[in-house]
Design a protein around this nucleic acid. Structure first.
Ligand SMILES: [Zn+2]
Ligand SMILES: [Zn+2]
Ligand SMILES: [Zn+2]
Ligand SMILES: [Zn+2]
Lengths: 166, 166
DNA sequence: ACTGTCCTTTAAAGGTCACA
DNA sequence: TGTGACCTTTAAAGGACAGT
């Protein structure tokens, strides 16, 4: 197996990656994304030229899914993973308080369900990490208290192209 | 200059990049991000333990900047670059209509200012591309008409960790 | 037609507080 | 004290339409 990669190829991959993460496509080729949340909107129907046509619309929607931690109903991703409001809050509080004192009174393998999720904090916390929740996404430092979407970074292209105006 | 890079290092860089793009940090080490937009919010003051303290708050704010294309005042990034509403709209319409018939009546190097920006479409369009606006960020296909933030992709960690529940 | 101001719509951050 | 249903706040996508 190759242990090195050409710098040029590396740049290509990075650029491609950044292009994807700049605007995630909710298309068929990336089901994992459509799985992330429910949605409902009207999309423009294509196939005709833009000039001289009445706009045609089509309803697009997708049902909600369940929390990756406990299985309760969930509408959006929180800290990187589709979860319910309860597990979202639990994860945030745990990260913010830096808690590492949870103990499991059983064997450390408790199943987490909507009804019992608050019984064993250790196993709930472990489950949060296993499904991929990102502690780093809980805002701290300068960003503590900052709500809502954060501004996106500039296009990586700016690192390579000459920008004649700053 | 190196023309190859170790695969392991490549993975590290990619992971680091994705970690950053998951939650961009608006801190001092990444001024290009704080430069992107204006903001104003209250942040929690740190330095004390979480238990048994009254929350302290501090105002944080930053003035708005100017459009990278024409220099008019701008509040947010559009299609990857801080621009005014006018240049945002011009860029969107141009991409959506797939226009490539613009011509410059001068030498193709018109300066773009708030007052003359609509005089030469070709030079305005070239300027949009030079400063890094991303045509791909104009939604088309399934996403045509879809408003607002799109759901984020799952954390790249999911590609490497075993996920025992789907 | 084209422009650009103003508006609505998104997902997902953090905050609130009755309830246990 | 911890929980979680519900709320506000973000940046930035698209839409509307009066003005040119
Ligand atoms: Zn849950
Ligand atoms: Zn347990
Ligand atoms: Zn502009
Ligand atoms: Zn010109």
């Amino acid at each position: 197996m190759e242990t090195t990669i050409h710098y040029q190829q590396f740049i290509e991959i990075l650029e491609n990656y950044q292009r994807q993460s700049f605007e995630p496509m909710m298309d068929n080729s990336m089901d994992s994304i459509t799985d992330l949340s429910c949605y409902s909107y009207e999309r423009r129907i294509e196939g005709q030229s833009w000039e001289n046509q009445a706009l045609a619309w089509e309803k697009v929607s997708k049902e909600c899914h369940s929390c990756a931690v406990c299985g309760d109903s969930a509408a959006y991703a929180h800290y990187g993973v589709l979860t319910c409001e309860g597990c979202k809050g639990f994860f945030k509080r745990t990260v913010q308080k830096g808690r590492s004192d949870f103990v499991c009174l059983k064997t450390g393998t408790c199943e987490i369900t909507p009804n019992n999720r608050s019984w064993c904090r250790l196993c709930r916390w472990k489950r949060c990490l296993i499904v991929g929740m990102v502690p780093n996404a809980v805002r701290s430092g300068h960003l503590a208290g900052r709500r809502g979407k954060l501004p996106k970074r500039k296009h990586i292209a700016d690192l390579y192209f000459l920008n004649d105006k700053h």
